[in-house]
């Protein structure tokens, strides 16, 4: 991580407790702009809980999540409701189990993502109801943006198809396209490669790199598919039992004894260790 620029997002001493269960324990993490930060860890490590705390779906028990917004200045995400995290702070997430609007078409899904801008242009629906030109222009602009992303994610042929009728890999891409329509500063992807075949995973790698390098969108990535995480991440944070156990570049993390222990279990015999994942 470059030390010169202030981090886009800084998580400090974040704690999330559900009754007796400590899902996230005193976790701190900095996320840099224009970079891909991977969050990995065994099942139940608290990765998705971390995302839920970040995006306002859970209120953290303790700690702070600060976003350094280029226009709005410092924002405390832990105090914002979920829709404001997306709307005002422009931190947008996808879901581990895809959450599209299945009966609506792909294009409509992407239009819903631009609701706030359009709703504003429609002046509480009055301008829209009478079809005033200001609203028509806003609608045209929103549609162009949606179509632009659909073209770039190779989904344009399916624009008029109900999202729920499409195959799984495509639905994953639609969810990313929809999140991109919210104009994210930080895009939080929860296992975007789950269920994808190797070719689709490779395409996802390219897309993520492109978004970070060329679009300047910071990406926070939860992923189990090591071929994706190790390949695209600039920085990786490893969680286990809600605690951060390691952090660093992909190579550093792969060699970290704590990480190997977390993934492969305690080494009490004299067996050779096999780091389970290689890019």
């Amino acid at each position: 991580m470059s030390a010169a620029t202030a981090p886009l997002l800084s998580v400090e001493r974040l704690t999330m407790r559900f009754g007796g269960l400590l899902a996230i324990d005193d976790m701190s993490l900095d996320v840099a702009g224009r970079q891909i930060t991977g969050v990995i860890g065994p099942n139940g490590a608290g990765k998705t809980t971390f995302f839920n705390c970040l995006t306002g779906f859970y209120k953290p028990t303790d700690g702070s999540v600060r976003l350094n917004h280029p226009q709005r200045g410092l924002m405390r995400l832990e105090a914002l409701p979920s829709h404001q995290v997306a709307h005002k702070a422009q931190v947008v997430r996808t879901f581990q189990n895809i959450r599209l609007f299945p009966k609506m078409t792909v294009l409509e899904n992407l239009m819903v993502a631009q609701h706030n801008a359009l709703q504003h242009a429609s002046r509480f629906s009055l301008a829209g109801l009478f079809g005033l030109s200001g609203y028509r222009q806003a609608e045209k602009k929103a549609m162009d943006k949606a179509i632009g992303w659909l073209k770039r994610l190779d989904l344009i042929d399916k624009a008029n198809t109900a999202a729920g009728d499409l195959p799984y890999g495509m639905q994953r891409r639609i969810e990313i396209a929809r999140a991109l329509c919210v104009d994210p500063l930080l895009l939080c992807l929860d296992e975007p490669a789950a269920g994808l075949n190797p070719r689709e995973s490779a395409e996802l790698n390219e897309l993520l790199k492109h978004l970070a390098r060329d679009e300047g969108i910071a990406i926070l990535l939860i992923e189990h598919d090591m071929s994706v995480v190790m390949n695209v991440s600039d920085h990786i944070c490893v969680l286990n039992y809600g605690r951060k156990i390691a952090e660093g570049s992909p190579t550093q993390v792969q060699q970290d004894p704590n990480v190997i222990k977390a993934y492969l279990g305690e080494d009490d015999a004299d067996e050779q260790l096999h780091p389970e994942a290689r890019p």
Binding site: F95, F101, P102, K103, E108, M111, A113, N116, Q119
Partner: peptide
């Protein structure tokens, strides 16, 4: 209109709506 699409989106998935910044 946007509000109508938001109604339908709300029927389909309320949590996804919130994640898209919809109140």
């Amino acid at each position: 209109l946007p509000i109508g699409r938001a109604w339908e989106a709300m029927r389909e998935d309320e949590i996804a709506c919130k994640a898209m910044g919809i109140n």
